[in-house]
C-alpha cells in the first residue's frame, strides 16, 4: 500500500469538510451495528445460537445462498459475456432489465415471481404440466430461485466490468498463435477474469445470504426448507423474542462481515486499475 506523500503544500492537507462528512457517513452506517452489539446478550448467546431452530435456519441459509450464488455464476457468466462482448440493438435495455432486481423492492420481485413461476404464472403452468412441479411455496427450490433473482445482478455487473477491463490484445494474440476459441476462453480469458468472478460470486452470495422479501413472498416461510436466518430473525422479533433475534442477527452479521473483509483484501483491493495507474500510488 502507499503512504500519503508528506509534502508541505497546503493543498495536500485533507479538506476538513470532506473528512467530517466521511465521519458522519461512517457513523450513520455503523451506529445501528454498535446499538445491536451493546444490546447483545453475550452470556446467553451460545445457548440461543445452539438451539435447533437457529441451527436449522443457519443450515437453510447456507444451502440456499450457496445454491443461489452457483445459479448466478452458471447463468450470469454467459450473460456478462454477451453484454460485454456483443453489440446488438437493445443492449442497454437488456442491461437495465438485468440490473433491475438490484433496485426493485424484493417484495415486488417475490410477487412478480408468482406471475412467472407460480401455478398460474407464465412459465409456472408449463412446470406444472411437464415436470409435475405442483408448487414452489415452501420448497428450498423456491427459496433458491427467489435468492438468485435478487443476487444474480451483483455477479453479472461485476463479471461484465471485469470482461471490459481485459486487454483484448491478449486474447487476439493467443488466437493468432493458433489457439481455438475454447482454448482462449479456458487458458486466457477465464484465468485473467478470475478475480472479478470471485468478487462477483462472493457479492452475490452475500446478497443471497441477506435476502428476505422475495423469499418470504414467493417461497413462503417453512421451517427447514425456506426459513432462512433473515426470516427466522424477523419472526423471532415479531414473536416478542428480541434476544433470539439479536443473537441470530449477530451471527448473520459476523458471517457477512467475514465475506466482505475477505472480498476486500483478497480480490478487489490489490488489483484495482487506479492503483496501477494513478499518480498517487507511484512513489514520489
Amino acid at each position: 500500500m502507499t503512504k500519503r506523500p508528506n509534502t508541505k503544500g497546503p493543498n495536500r492537507r485533507p479538506p476538513i469538510a470532506i473528512v467530517a462528512m466521511a465521519i458522519i457517513a461512517v457513523a450513520v452506517l455503523s451506529l445501528p451495528l454498535v446499538g445491536l452489539l451493546q444490546r447483545t446478550p453475550w452470556s446467553s448467546l451460545g445457548t440461543t445460537l445452539g438451539e435447533t431452530a437457529t441451527l436449522e435456519a443457519l443450515r437453510v441459509s447456507v444451502v440456499v445462498s450457496l445454491l443461489a450464488a452457483a445459479v448466478s455464476v452458471v447463468l450470469g457468466l454467459p450473460l456478462a459475456w454477451v453484454l460485454a462482448r456483443l453489440s446488438f440493438r437493445g443492449r442497454a435495455l437488456v442491461r437495465a432489465i438485468v440490473l433491475l432486481p438490484m433496485v426493485l423492492p424484493p417484495v415486488v420481485g417475490g410477487i412478480a415471481l408468482f406471475f412467472a413461476l407460480g401455478r398460474k404464472g407464465l412459465v409456472g403452468r408449463a412446470l406444472h404440466n411437464w415436470l409435475g412441479i405442483d408448487t414452489l411455496i415452501g420448497t428450498t427450490a423456491g427459496a433458491v430461485i427467489a435468492a438468485a433473482f435478487v443476487s444474480m445482478p451483483f455477479f453479472v455487473i461485476t463479471a461484465e466490468a471485469g470482461l471490459r477491463q481485459l486487454d483484448p490484445r491478449l486474447e487476439s494474440a493467443a488466437s493468432t498463435l493458433g489457439a481455438g476459441r475454447w482454448t482462449v476462453l479456458r487458458r486466457i480469458t477465464l484465468p485473467l477474469l478470475a478475480p472479478s468472478l470471485a468478487a462477483g460470486a462472493t457479492l452475490s452470495w452475500a446478497r443471497a445470504l441477506g435476502e428476505f422479501g422475495a423469499t418470504i413472498t414467493f417461497a413462503g416461510n417453512h421451517p427447514g426448507r425456506t426459513r432462512t436466518l433473515p426470516l427466522a430473525i424477523a419472526q423471532a422479533n415479531e414473536a416478542g423474542q428480541p434476544e433470539a433475534a439479536i443473537a441470530m442477527s449477530v451471527l448473520l452479521i459476523g458471517v457477512s462481515l467475514l465475506i466482505l473483509i475477505g472480498l476486500r483484501h483478497r480480490w478487489i483491493a490489490p488489483r484495482t486499475p487506479q492503483q496501477q495507474s494513478s499518480p498517487e500510488s507511484s512513489p514520489s
Binding site: 408448487t135 411455496i137 415452501g138 418470504i216 417461497a219 413462503g220 416461510n221 417453512h222 421451517p223 425456506t226 424477523a234 419472526q235 415479531e238
Partner: peptide, 10 residues
C-alpha cells in the same frame, strides 16, 4: 388434524 402447512405467513 395433523396438518403440515407449506408456509407460515406473518
Amino acid at each position: 388434524i395433523d396438518a403440515d402447512p407449506d408456509t407460515e405467513e406473518t
